[in-house]
């Protein structure tokens, strides 16, 4: 399964490296959102600093929706879904591959976004270990949930509008947990950062397990 996952993740990341959609579209989108939050909150640096954690994760969620749509739109073209079904790759492996590829792309987005908030919102980064762990587990959860809902609601014209409705309420615990943990790491929260990290871990584990269990059926039936 791990071998199959690496094959799929490699395929997706190679496609991404060649098409540069993340670089040319998602990263500028992230920059635009960072600037728009600045305009919306009247460029009040103190307020922006206070709201950084929430704004950071809201931007990550919006980017994740775009990237999940992209990740499954490429599968819809040229009958790739059928080719995957016909290949001997295990469905769980394909799911994990999609998760790994989304995870890698989202981590790149988060690094760039982190630099943007440091520059534009004048934030001083602290609590490095907590920031890193929370980023990893939260991103894993987003990638797992995105890969589960992606085949249902991405890639076909009449389904694209459905993905945010399905994905955003489901990702609400990630937004809550990751924002609060970031606040703690940045010295503005009331503690419990590692508790939130554990909750995010449980979320990711639930979605990874569910994805591995049902993705075969999903691939066959959609």
């Amino acid at each position: 399964m791990v071998h199959d996952a690496l094959i799929i993740a490699g395929k997706d990341l190679r496609l991404e490296a060649r098409s540069r959609v993340a670089l040319n579209q998602v990263l500028p989108f992230v920059l635009a959102v960072v600037l728009l939050f600045g305009f919306a909150l009247d460029a009040d640096t103190a307020l922006l600093r206070r709201a950084t954690s929430g704004l950071f994760w809201v931007t990550v969620l919006f980017s994740a929706v775009i990237m999940v749509q992209r990740s499954f739109a490429i599968e819809r073209q040229d009958g790739v879904t059928d080719a995957l079904r016909l290949s001997s790759l295990s469905p769980g492996g394909i799911f994990l591959g999609k998760v790994v590829s989304l995870f890698c792309q989202l981590i790149v987005v988060e690094v760039v976004l982190g630099l943007c908030v440091v520059v534009f919102y004048d934030v001083t980064l602290s609590g490095g270990a907590l920031l890193a762990v929370v980023s990893v587990v939260a991103t894993l959860g987003i990638a797992a949930a995105g890969s589960l809902y992606g085949p249902l609601a991405a890639g076909l014209r009449n389904r694209d509008t459905l993905l945010p409705l399905l994905l955003l309420p489901v990702l609400a615990p990630i937004l809550l947990g990751a924002s609060r943990a970031f606040e703690t790491a940045l010295g503005r929260g009331v503690g419990g950062g590692w508790q939130w990290a554990a909750m995010l871990g449980i979320f990711a584990a639930v979605y990874l397990a569910l994805g591995v269990a049902v993705w075969g059926t999903l691939l066959e039936e959609t």
Partner: peptide, 14 residues
């Protein structure tokens, strides 16, 4: 049926 069953189970797990 399959699609909605998966979404229903995922929602309940959450």
């Amino acid at each position: 049926a399959t699609r909605s069953a998966i979404v229903g189970i995922a929602a309940a797990c959450l």
